[in-house]
Computed example of a mutant assay.
Amino acid sequence: MELEVRHLRALCAIADTGSLHKAARQLGMSQPSLTTQLRRIEHALGGQLFSRERTGCRPTQLGRVVLSRARPLVTEMRALVAETKAAAARTAEGPQLRIGSTASRAIPGWLRKLRARLPGTEMSLQMDVSANALLRMVETGHLDIAFVHEVEGCPLRLPESLRRRVLLDREPQFVSLAADHPAADRPVVRLSDLAEDRWMVDPTVDGEWDGLRRVLTAAGLNPRVLHGDYLTAASLVATGEVVALCQPTSRGRTDMAVRPLYGDPLGVRLILAARTEEELDAVYGELEAAYWEAARQAPAYVEWLLRSGDGRGTTGGAPGGTLVPASR
């Protein structure tokens, strides 16, 4: 028997699910057929790859050796198929650019600038709270590029095959609070000012809850925490129910204030990732300009940048000049 990619895919499915039944369902085949196929693979390799236990299937020592070689091959084959399909689609339909991103105020301006520079290119955008999920999609060829943030102290699983460019090594995270909150009268808020408040955090955002918990613990705080999405958080912040971390490019409203935290206890790294340097070159300049354009429209961030002596935002939207505060 000669091993094929489908056999390696079957082994990976069994290892990932820990069950012949679940693996068969994932592969779209019957369990008896998968069991027979596994026996043939084991016979061909000359040893047992999985031990069958009451709790499921576990790789044997030989199985772990085989899986260590099989997984990269399966991943590469998936990427090859995805990239081939994408190339065929681009040939048939014209150039395409598939962008993935975590939440960012820079996205609208980025897309606008890309459309102006790449007329005739069909663009798609996929938003996801999970930076790791987006990076995997770039690795497998389902996306061309991903703009993600990496929470300080919670490194992302960046695939080795991807190229990356850091847009900002450390973007400080601000706090949003009700406009009538006592701390909203201050230009900079201390965590101790929020000791009695309930915080809201989205635990599905990679690293977000771990980062906030670490910062609160370091400040000696153990506040009440509500888990939920940030769209809901904005409404609850405005009514004074919660306070929440937010990006510095966020803009305040009549019912909500955005303020920097004293000492900037938490930051994120902004990363652009793609499979090639050429793909990064094609979109990075527009992203950089769009980010600083969004920064100039956020008064609290403008003031923070001026205080910190950071002059990367300019009136013209390109780095390297003098940041001018946005009109309030």
Rank of each mutant, 00 (worst) to 15 (best):
Leu306Trp: 12
Ala318Pro: 00
Leu305Gln: 15
Tyr291Ser: 03
Ala300Ile: 02
Ala318His: 12
Leu306Glu: 13
Leu305Trp: 11
Thr314Ala: 15
Pro319Ala: 14
Ala318Asn: 08
Val302His: 12
Pro319Arg: 12
Ser308Ile: 05
Gly313Ala: 14
Asp310Trp: 04
Thr314Ser: 15
Glu293Cys: 06
Gly316Ala: 09
Trp292Val: 02
Leu305Asn: 10
Gly309Pro: 13
Glu303Arg: 14
Arg312His: 14
Gly313Trp: 00
Glu293Ser: 10
Tyr291Gly: 00
Ala290Asp: 03
Glu303Gly: 03
Leu305Ile: 07
Thr322Val: 13
Leu306Val: 14
Leu305His: 10
Arg296Asn: 04
Gly313Cys: 14
Trp304His: 10
Pro319Tyr: 09
Tyr301Ser: 05
Ala295Phe: 00
Glu293Met: 03
Gly320Glu: 09
Trp292Met: 08
Thr314Val: 04
Ala295Val: 15
Thr314Met: 07
Ala294Gly: 10
Leu323Asn: 03
Trp304Arg: 00
Ala290Gln: 02
Pro319Asp: 14
Trp304Thr: 01
Pro299Trp: 01
Ser308Trp: 10
Ala295Pro: 07
Arg296Phe: 01
Trp292Ser: 05
Ala290Glu: 01
Ala298Ile: 03
Arg312Ala: 05
Ala298Asn: 05
Gly309Val: 13
Pro299Phe: 10
Val324Ser: 08
Pro319Val: 10
Pro299Tyr: 06
Thr314Tyr: 04
Val302Phe: 09
Arg312Trp: 10
Gly309Tyr: 11
Ala298Cys: 08
Thr315Leu: 12
Gly317Glu: 11
Thr322Lys: 01
Ala300Glu: 07
Arg296Tyr: 00
Ala295Asn: 04
Gly309His: 10
Pro319Ile: 08
Pro299Asn: 07
Ser308Phe: 10
Glu303Gln: 14
Gly320Lys: 00
Leu305Met: 15
Gly313His: 00
Gly320Leu: 06
Pro319Gly: 11
Gly316Ile: 01
Ala300Cys: 09
Ser308Gly: 08
Gly320Asp: 13
Ala326Leu: 07
Ala294Ser: 15
Gly321Pro: 11
Thr314Glu: 13
Val324Gln: 10
Arg312Phe: 01
Ala298Trp: 00
Arg307Val: 12
Ala318Arg: 13
Glu303Lys: 03
Gly317Thr: 05
Gly321Trp: 04
Ala295Gln: 06
Asp310Cys: 09
Thr315His: 05
Ala318Gly: 06
Arg296Gln: 13
Val324Met: 07
Gly311Asn: 11
Ala298Ser: 15
Thr322Glu: 12
Arg312Lys: 06
Arg312Ile: 00
Leu306Asp: 11
Thr322Met: 05
Ala295Lys: 01
Ala298Arg: 01
Gln297Cys: 12
Ala326Trp: 08
Gly316Trp: 03
Gly313Pro: 04
Leu305Val: 07
Ala290Ser: 14
Gly316Thr: 06
Gly317Met: 08
Leu306Ser: 08
Tyr301Asp: 11
Ala294Cys: 09
Leu306Phe: 07
Ala298Pro: 06
Val302Arg: 07
Thr314Trp: 08
Gly316His: 02
